[in-house]
Nucleic acid binder design. Structure first.
Lengths: 208, 208
DNA sequence: ACCTGAACACCGTTCAAGT
DNA sequence: ACCTGAACACCGTTCAAGT
């Protein structure tokens, strides 16, 4: 007679994320997760392969949270639509990082081969293409931009920049937008690819 | 009668780095370090406060390795001296990352309050000032540039970008130089601050 | 099918003891 | 001053057993 299922993978990942949020990554043990779910540690192994798999699952959760409510790229959204979307995506990453500061560092230390991670990449690819970035540079630039944005979000949320006041970090965000916008510039083709009517260069707004 | 000292802090840190290089961060335990030094785990505690202190010591070692042989900023080195120096520093960071791929991820997850870390920051500050970056933006831009350069070096050395061929990564390095150079541009004052004779904008070379 | 209990080989860290 | 031995409370993971 089959037992009723008492836990599942998402419950495990959610509990693990909660533990990391409260006690930091060092507190994140299989036993701690099991205790929080009122279950034996060994019960977890039916739903996650091992601890590495559990950590990858957390990364997946965070990636999905970054993409949550992200509007699909809007080709008719005006000349600078891609820039607005990019800045909003960076803002969501920062929000997720401040909700889960400890777990967020996992994003930069583990390979991003999961579905949600691929979605984030595809999202950025689309925005860069909208900005007129040449096809041979889209993936390359995505790696650079993603690293910068996630790295800054992680640094701000963790202890790495901890000695700074909140106002300093807000100013950092504005500077980051200018930096990324200007950094992309040399990779854009001179004619606008998205809005055929556009004549002036896009991207100036956030850089000043 | 005092015993002869058999180990010291640097020996411990070096052994720890070796272990991380061979077996990854998970293999890095106090017991493994002790065994490699032919000593009891408890002997380590006279030289490092605890495991967190040991990890911070490794970060210190890596930072020092990045700064090793870095020439002092040369104010008379021509208009683009700062850019050459910045690119070479990034190159050294990348070399250290490929020598110590596993340990390198620690650089981005731990606060950088040690001496060597401060030296790296001061080095970058000097280069940015040479580039004509306004004083109110120097520290901010250092955080952004350092995050980008270290993050890319870590990503290339770890599993995060592992699915790419070496040639792709070489091309990434060139794109990174263009990106950073262009990203800094809006923060530079229009008149050159370092070479009074200079008239044309510096930094164009690497961005094209 | 899903969870438990007992067991194994490890962890980081303490304390008192040896030289 | 520096290292050891024994001990404690934890780890991740296995295997066979229960329902």
């Amino acid at each position: 007679m089959p037992r009723p299922k008492t836990i599942d993978r998402t419950a495990i990942l959610q509990a693990a994320l909660d533990i990391a949020d409260t006690g930091g990554v060092p507190a994140l043990s299989m036993q701690a997760v099991a205790t929080r779910l009122a279950v034996t540690p060994m019960a977890l192994y039916r739903h996650v392969a091992n601890k590495a798999d559990l950590l990858d699952g957390i990364v997946e959760l965070l990636m999905a949270e970054i993409m949550a409510d992200a509007p699909a790229p809007d080709p008719d959204g005006g000349r600078d639509a891609w820039l607005d979307a990019l800045i909003r995506t960076a803002g969501r990453a920062r929000a997720v990082a401040s909700r889960h500061p400890a777990a967020f560092t996992l994003l930069l230390s583990r390979p991003a081969a999961t579905t949600a991670a691929r979605e984030v990449r595809a999202h950025i690819h689309g925005l860069l293409r909208q900005a007129g970035v040449g096809g041979e540079h889209v993936e390359r630039l995505e790696r650079i931009v993603t690293t910068t944005v996630l790295g800054m979000a992680a640094g701000q949320a963790s202890d790495r920049f901890a000695h700074h006041a909140p106002g300093v970090l807000d100013e950092d965000v504005r500077a980051l937008a200018r930096f990324v916008t200007a950094g992309i510039e040399p990779f854009r083709s001179s004619e606008e690819r998205v809005s055929p009517a556009g004549v002036s260069r896009a991207g100036r707004r956030a850089s000043r």
